[in-house]
Amino acid sequence: MTALHALTALCPPPAVPPPAPDWSQVEDAWGTSLPQDYKELVTAYGPGRFCGFITLYQPHSPSAWIDLTGPLPARLRGQIEEVRQAARHPWPLPHSPENLFAMGVTDNGDYLFWVTQPAETPDQWTVAVNEALRAPWFSYTGSLTEFLVGVLGGTTRVPMFPRDLLRHGPTFTPSTPRSTSLETTTRMAPVSTRTIREWADANGFDLPERGRIPYDVVEAWRHENPS
């Protein structure tokens, strides 16, 4: 059984997914080939969120926040070292920023990256996850689809993901035309941890100066700031 078959058995895709991108055109614009599993994954599912939490970047998305072929992935790669060096005690990086390419994001602002090594063999690329370009980092030795099978199947635990991620089981919610519009996705874009920390401090939450913001605090912020 392929990883995609395992994923679709675990988490059924839409009965009628949107038309698949023209992959040859996408890869020509990108300047390199994409992992075959990613192309099959996007073709099967289209845009949407896994467990209401994980969003994969899509080619030519109407939202700049999740556009695989837009400027955001390269911008994030350039910011990784800037954020690290700005910290009082810079943390070690498990991968060189030049080998990281953002291809997903969570509702908590965790970024999913391909580790693009070897560059000429994308089907061997693995996955790295981190929190808002900061520490900690989580590395997964396998493809993106295998990563999703592990996370949604409960066999792969990503420390920065909420513990109750699977409380409603593995699900995929397709994006509606409205939720993929530039206006709506801009409102739904991941918020910086600094914004949440400032709100938490002002509202009596006791947080450490650094480190991951607890999930319940993030949820409280979202409840008070729904738009």
Rank of each mutant, 00 (worst) to 15 (best):
T2D: 15
A3M: 06
A3P: 01
L4K: 13
L4Y: 06
H5G: 03
A6P: 02
C11E: 05
C11G: 04
P13F: 03
V16N: 15
V16T: 14
P17H: 09
P19D: 13
P19F: 09
D22H: 10
D22L: 08
S24A: 13
V26Q: 08
E27W: 05
G31A: 04
T32R: 15
S33P: 00
L41N: 09
L41K: 10
L41F: 14
A44G: 11
A44S: 15
Y45V: 11
G46M: 08
G48W: 06
C51V: 01
G52C: 08
F53P: 03
F53Y: 15
L56C: 08
Y57G: 00
P59D: 05
P59M: 05
H60T: 00
S61C: 12
P62G: 09
P62Y: 04
A64D: 14
P71S: 15
P71E: 14
P71R: 11
L72Q: 08
L72H: 04
P73A: 02
I80N: 00
Q85G: 01
Q85C: 04
A87G: 02
H89F: 01
H89Y: 01
P92N: 00
H95W: 06
S96N: 12
P97F: 10
E98K: 13
L100G: 02
A102V: 05
M103Y: 00
G104M: 12
V105D: 00
V105T: 11
T106G: 11
D107W: 02
N108S: 14
Y111Q: 12
L112I: 14
F113M: 00
F113R: 00
Q117W: 02
P118V: 05
P118I: 07
A119W: 14
A119Q: 11
E120C: 05
T121H: 13
P122T: 04
T126V: 08
N130L: 08
A132V: 01
R134C: 10
P136V: 09
W137Q: 13
W137K: 01
W137L: 04
F138G: 04
S139Q: 11
T141V: 13
T141R: 14
T141P: 04
T141E: 15
G142S: 05
G142E: 10
T145E: 09
T145A: 09
T145G: 03
F147C: 13
L148S: 07
G150T: 11
V151M: 12
V151W: 06
L152V: 04
T155C: 00
D164Y: 05
L165R: 14
L166W: 07
R167D: 14
H168T: 04
P177Y: 06
T180N: 10
S181N: 02
L182M: 07
L182V: 01
E183M: 06
T185Y: 05
R187H: 13
A189M: 13
P190L: 07
V191H: 08
R194A: 12
R194M: 07
T195W: 02
I196L: 06
A200N: 11
A202M: 02
N203M: 02
G204R: 11
P208V: 03
E209Y: 09
G211S: 12
R212I: 13
Y215N: 13
V217N: 03
V218Y: 07
V218P: 01
V218I: 15
E219D: 07
E219H: 04
W221L: 06
R222C: 05
N225C: 07
S227Y: 05
